[in-house]
C-alpha cells in the first residue's frame, strides 16, 4: 500500500519539452513510473524523445490518456496557472516541482483549489512524491514523480527489517539523507512526500500524516521540518491525539539567525514560536521521537520501531 500514487498511477509532465522537464520525464520513465504524455502549449500533436504524446492543454491530455497525476516543470511566472489548469482538468495529484513561484500567485492558486476538493497539490518548490517500486518491467514498478534519485529508496516489499515508513519533508536533499539512512538499515518506504519549502503551498504536514496514519502498510512516519511557520507543531498536536504509529521528527535550522531567509522562502524565523528549538520541544511534548542531529534520523526511527 501507499498514499496518493502507486504503480498504476498514470502521470503526465507539464513542461515536458523544456530541458528540465524532458530530463526528469526520462528519469521517471526509467524508474518505472507510468508516464503517459506531456503538455506544452503549441506543441500538441508532437511526440517527445520517448514517444510520449504531447498535448496543447491538460484537458486534452486527460481526455486522451486518462492521467490522474501531473508533474509540473513550467517556469515560475506560469507555474501557478499550470497548477490551476491541472486542477480544472480533473487531475487528482498535482505535483509542482518549480522553484521560485511568486507567493501571491500561490495565494490565488490556493484559493482557486478550494473549488476542486478532489485535487491534491504537492509543492511548489519540492522534490516530488515517490512510492518506491521494483523497477520497470516488474509487477510493482513503483511511481516516482519528481527529481529525487530513485535508487536510494527501498520498496516496502524489499524491506529487510520488515518495517516500512512514510517520510514527509519540506526539504529535498535532507529527505534523501533520511531515506538513505532508512534504506541502509533495511527500513523500506511506503511513500515519501516532499511538501516543499515555500510559505504558501499545497499538502501540509498534518494532511500528509493523516494519510500515512491510515495506510495499513506504513509502520512509522518520519517528519522533517524546518524553522519558520507552525505546520510541524500543528502536525505534532494531531499526532498526539490521533496517531498510534511511532513518529520521528527532525527540524533543521537550530543555528539559523533570526530574520534571515535560509534558501527556502519559508525558512525564516519571524516570531518566537517558529524556531527549531521551540518546535522540537513542542514535538517532544506531543510524544514524537526527536532526532538530535540529521545523522541520526534513521537510527531514531529504527529505535522507535523496536529494531
Amino acid at each position: 500500500m501507499s498514499i496518493l500514487v502507486d504503480s498504476s498511477t498514470k502521470v503526465i509532465c507539464q513542461g515536458i519539452t523544456g530541458a528540465v522537464g524532458a530530463f526528469h520525464t526520462k528519469g521517471c520513465l526509467e524508474y518505472g513510473t507510468k508516464m503517459v504524455g506531456g503538455v506544452t502549449p503549441g506543441k500538441g500533436g508532437q511526440k517527445d524523445a520517448h514517444g510520449l504524446p504531447i498535448f496543447n492543454t491538460v484537458e486534452q491530455a486527460v481526455r486522451a490518456t486518462g492521467c490522474e497525476a501531473s508533474m509540473i516543470f513550467v517556469p515560475p511566472p506560469f507555474a501557478a496557472d499550470a497548477i490551476m489548469e491541472a486542477a480544472a482538468a480533473g487531475v487528482r495529484v498535482v505535483c509542482c516541482i518549480t522553484e521560485g513561484v511568486p507567493v501571491l500567485d500561490m495565494v490565488k492558486a490556493k484559493a482557486f483549489l478550494r473549488d476542486y476538493p478532489a485535487t491534491t497539490l504537492i509543492g511548489p518548490n519540492c522534490p516530488g512524491i515517490i512510492t518506491p517500486g521494483e523497477g520497470p518491467g516488474s509487477s510493482n514498478p513503483g511511481c516516482k514523480i519528481g527529481i529525487m534519485p530513485g535508487y536510494i529508496h527501498t520498496p516496502a516489499s524489499h524491506a529487510k527489517s520488515g518495517k516500512k515508513v512514510g517520510i514527509i519533508s519540506r526539504s529535498g536533499t535532507l529527505t534523501y539523507e533520511a531515506v538513505w539512512q532508512c534504506s541502509s538499515r533495511g527500513i523500506g518506504q511506503t511513500t515519501c512526500v516532499g511538501i516543499g519549502g515555500d510559505p504558501v503551498k499545497g499538502l501540509n504536514f498534518t494532511e500528509c500524516v493523516k494519510m500515512l496514519a491510515d495506510d495499513p502498510q506504513t509502520d512509522g512516519i518520519i517528519l522533517i521540518g524546518e524553522i519558520g511557520g507552525s505546520d510541524e507543531v500543528a502536525a505534532g498536536r494531531f499526532i498526539q491525539q490521533n496517531v498510534k504509529k511511532p513518529v520521528t521528527a527532525f527540524i533543521a535550522g537550530r543555528t539559523a539567525p533570526p530574520g534571515r531567509r535560509m534558501g527556502h522562502a519559508g525558512a525564516i524565523i519571524s516570531g518566537g514560536e517558529d524556531t527549531a528549538d521551540a518546535k522540537l520541544s513542542a514535538l517532544r511534548v506531543c510524544g514524537l521521537h526527536v532526532a538530535e542531529t540529521p545523522a541520526t534520523i534513521g537510527q531514531t526511527m529504527a529505535r522507535a520501531l523496536g529494531l
Binding site: 519533508s169 519540506r170 526539504s171 529535498g172 536533499t173 535532507l174 529527505t175 539523507e177 519549502g197 522533517i224 524546518e226 524553522i227 527532525f250 533543521a252 535550522g253 537550530r254 543555528t255 539559523a256 534571515r260 535560509m262 534558501g263 527556502h264 525558512a267 527549531a276 538530535e292 542531529t293 540529521p294 545523522a295
Partner: peptide
C-alpha cells in the same frame, strides 16, 4: 552544501559537535 534544508542541518550538526558555522 547542496539543498537549503541539508545546509541548515549541516550547520546544526557542526554546532552539535562543538563547532561554529561561518556561513549558510
Amino acid at each position: 552544501v547542496n539543498g537549503a534544508g541539508l545546509a541548515m542541518a549541516t550547520m546544526d550538526i557542526i554546532k552539535f559537535h562543538g563547532g561554529d558555522p561561518a556561513n549558510f
